[in-house]
């Protein structure tokens, strides 16, 4: 059994316009929060999409719980919760109806499951407001509710703080930390906001132009540098990002 929940081996994705991700090898350990850091267009979302089987790698391998993802999606993906970019929902339906559809597809139709997920993110159950009338922050909250609704063991979250107000960000951070610390969940979170990752992650991976520049524990970073921003600047050889 692998000690890593997520492990990629030389993961590569090439499009007609060039390489988006090149020979990426990341290692996410059980019960840890792993922050994938990089500027816009660094390859974070492409990596996460490959980890969820939404796009096929040009080369390399994705192992989740020590098993290759491709070919084992039916066993692996039900244990994973995810948000990729802006959450996609049906605009004419309410939050409850949207979650009901995904719960039905998952085979976990239960009013309590939907209500609990909405309670956690602070959205009302049975509200009449449809998704198209939601603010950006509310849409993001619903995306988080969808990701956690089925009590997954692993969360893959692409920029989950996007659109949330400061209180919402603090609440989500505290919730994710709680999931990790108290329930032993493993979280892979991507962000271009260094301050957020510094408050949330146990381990970090810095990615730039599709290449993983560094992977280590955040505690180790702080033994050498004053701040994550200083470290990021040094590693990427350029400006900070936030």
């Amino acid at each position: 059994m692998s000690e890593y929940i997520i492990e990629t081996k030389n993961l590569t994705k090439t499009y007609d316009i060039g390489q988006s991700v090149a020979n990426l090898s990341i290692h996410v350990r059980k019960g840890r929060t792993y922050g994938l850091l990089g500027r816009n267009g660094a390859g974070k979302t492409t990596t996460m999409k490959m980890l969820l089987g939404l796009i096929k790698p040009t080369d390399g391998e994705v192992l989740i719980w020590g098993r290759p993802l491709f070919g084992n999606e039916k066993e692996i993906l039900p244990r994973v919760g995810s948000i990729i970019e802006a959450p996609g929902f049906y605009p004419n339906l309410t939050a409850t109806e949207n979650l009901y559809i995904f719960a039905t597809l998952r085979g976990v139709v239960n009013c309590h499951v939907i209500k609990d997920a909405l309670d956690i993110v602070g959205l009302p159950y049975g509200d009449k407001k449809v998704f198209s009338q939601y603010s950006l922050g509310m849409k993001q909250r619903l995306g988080i509710a969808l990701a956690i609704m089925h009590n997954p063991e692993l969360l893959i979250l692409d920029e989950p703080m996007n659109g949330l107000d400061p209180i919402g960000i603090a609440e989500l951070r505290s919730f994710l930390r709680q999931l990790c610390d108290e329930k032993g969940k493993t979280i892979l979170v991507s962000s271009h906001t260094l301050s957020e990752i510094s408050l949330l992650a146990d381990d970090i991976g810095i990615i730039d132009k599709g290449i993983l520049l560094e992977e280590q524990s955040l505690a180790k970073v702080y033994t050498c540098e004053d701040s994550l921003e200083e470290h990021f600047k040094r590693i990427t050889g350029g400006e900070g990002i936030a």
Binding site: K49, L52, G53, L54, E73, K74, L77, P78, V80, S82, I84, E85, A86, P87, G88, F89, Y90, P91, F102, L105, R106, L146
Partner: peptide, 17 residues
């Protein structure tokens, strides 16, 4: 077409369906 325009396929395929 609405599954593409509403961006719901990424949530459906990762269930997985």
């Amino acid at each position: 077409g609405r599954e593409y325009t509403d961006g719901t396929l990424k949530s459906i395929f990762t269930i997985p369906v």
